[in-house]
Amino acid sequence: MNAAIADQALMLAGILFVLGLISVLIRRNIIFMLISVEIMLNAAGLAFIAAGARWGQPDGQVMFVFILTMAAAEVSVGLALILQIYHQLKTLDSDAADKMHG
């Protein structure tokens, strides 16, 4: 193992993050947007892990655990919201939920 892997892992994290970002921008389906957010969160976690590995410290992993927790909570609430939206609007189109102009 050498330091180059950590840098490459960071680049991988960047690529994955941007892919998630592209997805969240081009998709109109709310579930796809939620998945994309998961990809982005995962990429961020990867960046933490790479940084932790780079310095040989456990803090990166600790941060990943927190991100994981956050992602789990976010998915549960997000899915509940998606259920409600689908119930109300009969569609998964995120652009349809613009009545509040918020």
């Binding site: 193992m1 050498n2 330091a3 892997i5 950590a6 932790g52 590995a53 780079r54 310095w55 040989g56 410290q57 456990p58 990166g60 992993q61």
Partner: peptide, 8 residues
Amino acid sequence: TALTTQAV
């Protein structure tokens, strides 16, 4: 910087 990554 060349630092060895070790398993945590």
